[in-house]
């Protein structure tokens, strides 16, 4: 369980990035963490893994991340958006990283590298950006930690690799792990995540499961009497996010439109989902 209570953080004293985030993230889900640029998604992930120290109460698996307790750090792994690329071979990096993670699984590492077709004996610095990313994702998956945080993991991946990524992460979820994926590439993860968190500086705009979203909102052409939250053009005419009528069938969630609807109708969304968040 990850619990945040009035979490605050700023890189500079008078420029806070996070201004009081309160959030509960139960285990065993794949979370999509969305938000505009600069709302503090990456900062939040770094705070959760103990690399940045925030103010307020927050715990990961019952530990206080600001203490950087080894028992907590063994349970959490972050894939940063931009990581310092080291001049070592992939397999060497795995060899020196593995001892820190009691849950390290060499077979996951081998199979992920095989699926991504990453050469294991070449130096990371000689690989392309996409290959580097795939190697680091493979490494983090093999750490096999109960908590896996990923910041823009699909940036730089080609289309087949994105499918492989989704398959590998989905496989992990079967084992009851908690995965948080922060991304702007919502198309890459829409079939993967089962809960969505939309963040802004002042707090959490939405924290709901996909089922809850499709139960409350519908994504279709708007009709007469619909409460429209957001509309955009499409080849088949205007497409809208509307408040779902109790008697209509559920529709599949369009992440991009949901995001725009949440951003443009913050108060209405809070009202719609507030009982669920409690």
């Amino acid at each position: 369980m990850i619990e945040l209570n009035d979490l605050r953080y700023g890189y500079y004293r008078h420029q806070p990035v996070l201004r009081g985030i309160s959030l509960s993230l139960p285990e065993g889900h794949i979370y999509g963490l969305l938000g505009k640029n600069g709302v503090g998604k990456s900062t939040l992930l770094k705070i959760l893994c103990g690399s940045l120290i925030g103010e307020g109460e927050y715990t990961v698996a019952g530990y206080n991340p600001r203490r950087q307790h080894p028992a907590m750090l063994e349970k959490i792994r972050l894939v940063p958006e931009a990581e310092a690329i080291l001049p070592v071979a992939v397999e060497d990096l795995a060899r020196v990283t593995a001892p820190f993670y009691p849950t390290w699984n060499q077979s996951i590492f081998e199979s992920a590298l095989n699926e991504f077709q990453v050469p294991r004996n070449k130096q990371l610095t000689t690989l392309s950006l996409g290959q580097q990313k795939k190697a680091l994702i493979s490494l983090s998956l093999a750490c096999n930690t109960p908590y896996l945080l990923m910041d823009e993991p699909t940036n730089g991946l080609d289309i087949p690799s994105k499918s492989i990524f989704r398959r590998l992460v989905a496989g992990l979820c079967d084992e009851g792990k908690t995965v948080i994926i922060s991304t702007h590439q919502v198309d890459d993860i829409d079939s993967l995540i089962d809960r969505i968190v939309i963040l802004e500086n002042e707090g959490v705009l939405l924290n709901a499961s996909i089922d809850e979203v499709s139960g409350r909102l519908a994504f279709r052409h708007a009709g007469e009497g619909d409460e429209v939250l957001y509309t955009e053009g499409s080849p088949v005419g205007p497409w809208s996010v509307v408040v779902r009528r109790p008697d209509e069938p559920e529709t599949s969630v369009n992440m991009k439109m949901l995001f725009n609807a949440v951003i443009s109708h913050k108060d209405r969304i809070r009202t719609l989902f507030s009982p669920l968040e409690d």
Binding site: P70, L73, T97
Partner: peptide, 15 residues
Amino acid sequence: NPQTSLQYLALPGSR
């Protein structure tokens, strides 16, 4: 350096 310190400090080990 935020990148290297992130990588180093995030490794499981006490301060």
